[in-house]
């Protein structure tokens, strides 16, 4: 089995935004991997590995569309345990969702992968649409917002618990398929592959790279593509008119007691 995981780098979400000229100035930003992509890689590794042994049930490939020389996040994911990388040399900030999806779908096709795993959204753009688009382009089934992923031994399908508005939906999808993961997928028992012992508990969250992983990552293969050699043109369907700070909330007040609070909610805010 082959699993392709889509990853991207984002400006550190804990840094404050610098607004300039109708946009945001990211020139001094620190770039970090998108948290949901870390969960996606963790999900893929849990599906691929047999915990406590060196046996692997699948090859995990990480893919990113990113500017040349800005591949630190790819190296980080290789250090976490992915086998190899595929990058598309392009400034992803200039590409729309249509184009990014086509690039990923084309790589999935060429690599003949069985599963694409993606984070449910990127913390910067918050589009929440790339995984669904990839599934559409490939004509594959999809399971989005996954909180739990189960595979029986050698099965050609996954059973996925999806977080939906009024609860949880259990969806079975045949492979090949696209999976988008929500944050609860990295709880200790959220992913099982039918081979790792059923009572195995992972450490919560995405794993950290080991020292050995970091050393090995430098030797792992990263294949480089361009838009041209993947046969994809930038569709340019989205135009940014402006990026502005949201209107600030008027500053509030600290009340001295529960009595004052309830009194003000009643007479001032008139919400009681």
């Amino acid at each position: 089995m082959k699993i392709l995981v889509t990853v991207k780098r984002i400006p550190d979400p804990d840094e404050s935004l610098k607004f300039a000229d109708g946009g945001v100035d990211y020139s001094a930003s620190k770039w970090v991997p998108n948290a949901f992509d870390e969960y996606a890689v963790e999900t893929a590794l849990r599906l691929a590995e047999v915990a406590g042994s060196k046996e692997r049930l699948a090859e995990v490939i990480v893919m990113s569309v990113c500017p040349q020389g800005q591949r630190q996040h790819v190296t980080q994911f290789l250090a976490m345990g992915a086998e190899r990388g595929v990058v598309v040399d392009a400034d992803d900030s200039t590409l729309d969702s249509i184009t990014i999806s086509k690039l990923i779908a084309e790589v999935a096709r060429r690599e003949e992968v069985d599963l694409v795993v993606a984070g449910k959204l990127s913390q910067d753009n918050e589009g929440n649409q790339i995984p669904q688009r990839i599934a559409g382009l490939l004509n594959w089934p999809q399971a989005c917002f996954a909180a739990e992923v189960r595979r029986e031994k050698d099965a050609k399908e996954l059973t996925v618990s999806r977080e939906v508005d009024d609860g949880v939906e259990i969806k079975k999808i045949p492979l090949p398929a696209v999976l988008s993961v929500d944050l609860r997928v990295v709880l200790p028992a959220s992913v099982s592959n039918g081979v790792t012992a059923a009572d195995h508990r992972y450490q919560e969250g995405a794993r950290l790279a080991s020292l050995r992983g970091i050393t090995m990552a430098k030797r792992k293969k990263v294949q480089v593509h361009s838009l041209e050699d993947l046969g994809v043109q930038n569709s340019g369907s989205e135009t940014t008119r402006a990026i502005t700070p949201p209107p600030a909330r008027p500053s509030g007040q600290i009340v001295a007691s529960a009595e004052e609070l309830v009194e003000k909610l009643k007479s001032e805010a008139k919400v009681l």
Partner: peptide, 23 residues
């Protein structure tokens, strides 16, 4: 932007080569 339309609309948009603005 319900969980169902967030699931289905981007897929449909991809099939039509159309842009989608979320939320």
């Amino acid at each position: 932007a319900s969980s169902s339309l967030r699931d289905a609309l981007p897929r449909a948009a991809a099939l039509l080569d159309a842009a989608l603005t979320s939320e």
